[in-house]
């Protein structure tokens, strides 16, 4: 029985390798960092943005709770946002969240399943922050300039 389980797991591990190079290209579309319209800020520094998406900054300067929305770790927009805007790799972000969540010292961001859901949350949840493709500008969200 044990031998069978071990052999099965070894096979499973070996089976991953052929999938190696089947990866999505990262999107060329540029992204906007967006917040709920009531978030008054126009500009945000990269460092503060990293603190927010690293789940270490919990409120806006006016005291409103920050609600962070992200797409799945492997979603092309999330990968592009992490690498090109935050300058952090998605797996680094995930590890930082895990360290907070499983030591009780922080919380994880809200995960949405699509760009449309992201748009809906940013429009409607006070204090929300996320990212959207900039080709579809939206006057119902506040676009933050990253400096």
């Amino acid at each position: 029985m044990k031998t069978a389980i071990i052999v099965l797991i070894l096979i499973l591990h070996a089976a991953v390798v052929p999938g190696v190079y089947a990866q999505d290209k990262s999107p060329l579309d540029t992204l906007d960092v967006v917040a709920h319209p009531e978030v008054r800020q126009q500009n945000i520094s990269r460092n503060v943005l990293r603190a927010i998406f690293g789940m270490r900054l919990r409120k806006w300067p006016d005291g409103m709770p920050i609600k962070v929305f992200v797409l799945r770790d492997d979603a092309p927009f999330h990968v592009a946002f992490s690498k090109e805007i935050l300058h952090v790799f998605p797996h680094q972000l995930r590890r930082a969240w895990d360290r907070l969540v499983y030591s009780g010292t922080g919380q994880s961001p809200f995960e949405v399943t699509s760009v449309e859901e992201m748009r809906e949350k940013i429009r409607n949840v006070p204090g929300a922050i996320g990212y959207l493709p900039s080709i579809k500008r939206d006057k119902h969200v506040n676009i933050l300039q990253v400096r």
Binding site: R58, K59, G63, M64, P65, I66, V101, Y102, G104, Q107
Partner: peptide, 10 residues
């Protein structure tokens, strides 16, 4: 199994 609750951002 863990739970966290943040009634206020602070």
């Amino acid at each position: 199994l863990n739970a966290s609750f943040r009634p206020d951002p602070d």
